[in-house]
Amino acid sequence: MKVLKNELFDEFKCLAGECPETCCYGWRIIVDDETKKRILEKDGIWGKCLRFSLQGPDKNYFNYDSGSCIFHGINGLCNVQKKLGTEYMPEICRKYPREIRNYGSFATKHLDLSCVHVSQMLLARQQRPALIECDEECERDRHGSNDDPQFEEIVLTSQKEIIQMLNVKPQLLFDPATMDRILHALLAYCQYAQDTVLAHKDMKLTKEDGMPSYFYELCKSDDMPDAGRSYFPLPIMALNRLINTQFDLQDSRPFSMINRTIEWYHHKFDLKTEIEGQKVWTRMVKEFLREDPSRMEAILRYLQYDVQQCYAEIYENYSFVHFAVSAIMHVNMFLFLMVNYNRKKKLTQDSMAKLLSAYERAACHNLGLNKDMYAIVCDYLPIQTLELG
């Protein structure tokens, strides 16, 4: 089978007890049916302990209150794995942070950035990790039912073009306008593609004037669509609405990075008017990127990884615009966290990785919160959220 795989996938090795974070805290862990069956059949004290720990309406969760998993040992390791082996661990625990999707005619293999070690690997590499096309077996069942080779070509070809758009010259890494043009081009292309899908037109989007590179060239000229609106950075009031979704409450640990960063933001901006706050925010972003081009590089890597990991999902959900709006939201929230963290603490590569991982866990894995944040960004852009017929 054709597999699109991020090259980090084969390099990843869990840090286990050496990990600076833990995937055993803050997650409601679903227990798959096969593992639950083994648990229900397990004899002895460990069987009773495992069954007692099954929670939720259907008794198919560990750590239902999203605190610290009862099986998380003081050494940072899983006591179930140590005492019983991986077969009694839920599948998500055995596989995390690996993410594999089988689309029938092709598959994708990635690592989830909610794992801090994956974020560290992404930012620490000398070169951005590539998306590799190879021929491999896929151990996962098919995801979805689409069987349209023409649309597959459109999705995968445009994905390659979007990744190519991110090959920014080093001298442009100081300028927020660089990312603004990229995000304008991304949304303009996705809106064009979405309109074509909704109208059930002939899906020949691979022609020269119907691909991402065409819109990117427009955005580098005076013909940039929606030129009067900034996509990067988003205005401070839009970002303020995003964090007021209780985004900062997703990690209840005292002194968590996100909680502290949001607190520092409020101290800086709460007493300012909207106009004053916007002036301060614009100046802070320009100074932040001008100080160190590696900061824009981190944002570009995050956007590229998002394209590599999530863009192929359009093959099943046809939601071009949803992908583009989500990407705009993600890179701006990452920028927001880095800028405000940098006011109080030294923003090292490691702290950037931890902020990225914390954001992914707080926003991207909470479907309700993610939906609320998405609607806020649509309000600003603005976007008509049409349903596919």
Rank of each mutant, 00 (worst) to 15 (best):
K59F: 09
M89P: 07
L113G: 08
I236T: 06
L386F: 09
Y311Q: 03
I74A: 10
G67M: 00
A185C: 06
C378L: 00
G368T: 02
Y96L: 01
Y359C: 03
Y231M: 12
C310P: 00
L123V: 06
L77I: 14
V339H: 05
Y216G: 05
T261L: 03
K82M: 09
D10K: 10
E18R: 15
N370E: 08
F323T: 08
H143S: 10
L249W: 07
N6C: 13
G67E: 01
Q126V: 13
Q159W: 00
G73K: 14
D65P: 01
A327T: 05
E287L: 14
S326R: 15
T86C: 09
H143M: 10
R253C: 07
D33E: 15
C19G: 11
K201L: 15
P382C: 04
S230H: 03
Y315R: 02
D180Y: 00
I243S: 03
D141T: 09
E152S: 10
S158A: 13
M121R: 11
G368L: 05
K59I: 00
I182Y: 02
H266V: 08
D175G: 01
W264A: 14
N102G: 03
S68P: 02
H365L: 12
F106H: 07
E21I: 00
N146F: 02
F232E: 04
M333D: 06
S230Q: 04
A324E: 03
P254G: 00
K344Y: 08
A363H: 06
I162V: 06
G144F: 03
E133L: 08
E297Y: 06
R283N: 14
L111W: 00
A353P: 05
A177E: 11
H200W: 09
L40T: 00
D141S: 14
S119G: 11
S66Y: 01
A363W: 01
Y311R: 04
N79K: 15
E7F: 02
W264Q: 13
H365C: 03
L300Y: 01
D141F: 03
E263I: 07
E263Q: 13
C310H: 12
R283V: 08
V285M: 04
A227F: 05
T108K: 01
I299R: 00
F288N: 07
E153T: 09
Q126W: 07
L356G: 15
R301K: 12
P233F: 02
D65W: 02
F71A: 06
K36S: 06
N340K: 04
L186E: 06
I328F: 07
E41F: 07
K59G: 10
G144T: 04
W27C: 01
R295I: 05
L242C: 13
K268Y: 13
D195V: 07
T35W: 01
L388T: 14
D202C: 12
A375L: 14
G17M: 12
S66T: 04
D148N: 14
F336R: 10
I314E: 03
C93L: 05
L337M: 11
G26I: 06
H72W: 09
R260Y: 00
A227S: 15
K345D: 09
D195T: 11
T22R: 07
A177C: 06
F9Y: 15
F336C: 09
L367P: 11
S326M: 14
